[in-house]
Simulated assay, not measured.
Amino acid sequence: MRRILHLSDLHYGRDDAALEEPLLATIASLRPDLVVISGDFTQRARRRQFAEAAEFVARIEAPVLSVPGNHDTPIDNLWRRFVTPFHRYKAYIDPVLEPSVEDDEMHVVGVNTVNRFSWQRGRFSRRTARRVCNVFAEAGDKLKVVVVHHPLEHGPTVEKRLMRGASAALSALSDCEADVVLSGHLHTASAAPFTAAPGLLFVQAGTGLSTRRRGETNNFNVLDVEAGRVSITTWGADELEFAPGESATYARGANGWERVAGEAEFSARPQMALA
């Protein structure tokens, strides 16, 4: 079994500083095999914000795989965003924009979905989808996980535009038998099979530290994974402590991922619909 802790949207520069120590302590207590951070380390991609985010990451007592989010590129300096959009991210967080981690049980691949020419909306190119599928072609029976910032599906209440190439990427990842997609961006937590690809599990993290909670508590996900089975628990902040909340377990069935009978649903689970 492997444990993945999925964290997203820290937004240093608009973070709740009082939650930083409780979050780090909870991460350490859960002893994950891998911590995934799916983008938006900063609010405005400024050096001080990146320095604070880098200090946070350095204190995580587990391997970390991260991808950038749209807030990790400058919004108020167009020249820098178009010419060197990831300079500070590479300097402070990770020089590799699309890292991967592999062990005996899982293969996790990061994808940079940030689109420098459309700051809010992301992009998942066909070339990127082919790259990910080529990596997974050698993964065998390992759990195959994709990490992105922008979701590949939106629920009916989401006002943000779905990123470019999302439909084609979802189809490609389904065809090459990816298992799980981890994403952020919307500041809401959920877990369900994709509507258009039930063989692919969509796990969405809320915001770990941002004050822009959009009606939720600050939270992160814990995935306990083994052959053909994934259990997801959302840990949310209660005052200055993080505690386990809603959970769901999915197992691979004849029609894709199916919720295990008797396990609690995500009460806030959205009705996923391809935009």
Results as ranks from 00 to 15, higher is better:
40 D>V: 04
40 D>F: 09
41 F>N: 02
41 F>D: 08
43 Q>R: 08
45 A>G: 01
46 R>F: 15
46 R>G: 14
47 R>V: 15
48 R>I: 14
49 Q>V: 13
49 Q>P: 09
50 F>I: 09
50 F>M: 05
50 F>S: 04
51 A>Q: 12
53 A>W: 04
56 F>V: 01
56 F>L: 11
57 V>T: 05
58 A>D: 15
58 A>M: 03
58 A>C: 01
58 A>E: 14
60 I>K: 06
61 E>P: 12
61 E>C: 09
61 E>M: 04
62 A>K: 02
65 L>Q: 06
67 V>E: 09
67 V>D: 04
68 P>S: 02
68 P>L: 07
70 N>K: 05
72 D>E: 05
72 D>H: 00
74 P>F: 04
74 P>Q: 01
76 D>E: 15
79 W>R: 04
81 R>L: 08
82 F>M: 07
83 V>Q: 03
84 T>N: 06
84 T>C: 00
86 F>A: 01
87 H>G: 00
87 H>L: 01
88 R>G: 02
89 Y>I: 00
90 K>S: 05
91 A>T: 13
94 D>H: 08
95 P>W: 02
95 P>K: 08
96 V>T: 13
96 V>I: 10
98 E>F: 06
98 E>N: 09
101 V>I: 05
102 E>Q: 13
104 D>H: 10
104 D>K: 13
106 M>E: 12
106 M>F: 07
107 H>E: 13
109 V>S: 03
112 N>Y: 06
112 N>E: 02
113 T>P: 14
114 V>S: 07
115 N>M: 07
116 R>A: 02
117 F>A: 00
117 F>R: 14
119 W>R: 15
120 Q>T: 15
121 R>P: 03
122 G>S: 02
123 R>C: 07
123 R>H: 05
126 R>M: 06
126 R>K: 11
131 R>D: 10
131 R>T: 10
132 V>D: 03
133 C>A: 06
134 N>F: 04
135 V>C: 14
135 V>R: 15
136 F>H: 14
137 A>E: 13
137 A>D: 11
139 A>M: 09
140 G>P: 05
141 D>V: 01
144 K>I: 08
145 V>C: 09
145 V>D: 10
146 V>E: 09
147 V>G: 10
149 H>G: 11
149 H>L: 08
149 H>F: 07
150 H>V: 11
150 H>P: 14
150 H>R: 01
152 L>M: 08
153 E>Q: 12
154 H>C: 02
155 G>W: 03
156 P>V: 04
156 P>W: 02
157 T>S: 09
157 T>Y: 13
159 E>L: 13
159 E>D: 14
160 K>N: 11
160 K>V: 15
161 R>P: 08
162 L>N: 04
162 L>M: 13
163 M>Q: 11
